[in-house]
Design a protein around this nucleic acid. Structure first.
Lengths: 122, 122
DNA sequence: AATACTATATCGGCGCGCGATATAGTTAAC
DNA sequence: GTTAACTATATCGCGCGCCGATATAGTATT
């Protein structure tokens, strides 16, 4: 069934926590705890998602249709029953892309204001 | 008098509103309403700072030592008495730079996850 | 005279980050 | 062998910050 067309821009700006979760799910499906570790590793320990932030965000992002839970579980043999796996929805992917473009524009502005060195055209 | 050394990283991530205000003040001193218009113009109407956000943020950023109010007013002749002018402190500048670098890293991650096309090395 | 713009300020609702806490099974140390 | 650390999910409540509404008031425009 068709969900009424929503514009990704209306969800912007995303909170850092939500964007980190979308980034973690952008390349592959993951369960909650796996998302937590991916963020920790990708940011070299600079960003730690606490359980309140993680599972609270997941709940809201599910309700907003940005992510969805998998029915089947990948690798059923070497698996932990407690895990709940999530993936991006098409809409979630578009929202993540829109946010990435917004941040890109912010960086461009920062360069124009000489807060960052200009590597190419600012 | 010397303010105890604070690390800019402890202020991150900045809220979008605070970063927009720092960007607006990065190139020149401005009064509140001027900040509002600069953000509106720079973002081509996409970001509108309401008075609650603007003056609430200014008050907090003053308390945090990110911005400071000017004693003298620039252009005293063609001026409005009601205006209150602000500028970045050295610390505010360092915080803005640190936030810009954080956003740059976010964009790099987004490119690595193929949410954005790679213009150079991602 | 009315409308719109400039300029600053406060208040209250609401969303969200986040630490604390809870539960519970697994693995590693000593 | 029990103590500790890790894996995994979930809820609660505090506090901060965004933001619209509202207020005040002078200036400019129509």
């Amino acid at each position: 069934m068709k969900v009424p067309t929503r514009r990704p821009e209306e969800f912007l700006p995303l909170t850092p926590a939500m964007f980190h979760i979308l980034l973690a799910l952008a390349d592959k499906e993951r369960h909650g705890y796996h998302i937590m570790r991916e963020v920790d590793e990708r940011t070299e320990g600079n960003v730690k998602l606490g359980p309140g932030t993680l599972y609270g965000s997941i709940k809201r992002m599910m309700a907003d249709g940005l992510i969805e839970e998998l029915d089947e579980r990948p690798d059923p043999e070497l698996d932990d029953e407690r895990r709940r796996y999530y993936r991006l929805t098409d809409f979630g992917f578009r929202v993540a892309t829109a946010e990435a473009q917004r941040l890109e524009q912010m960086v461009r502005s920062a360069r124009a204001k000489k807060l960052l060195p200009r590597t190419k055209s600012g």
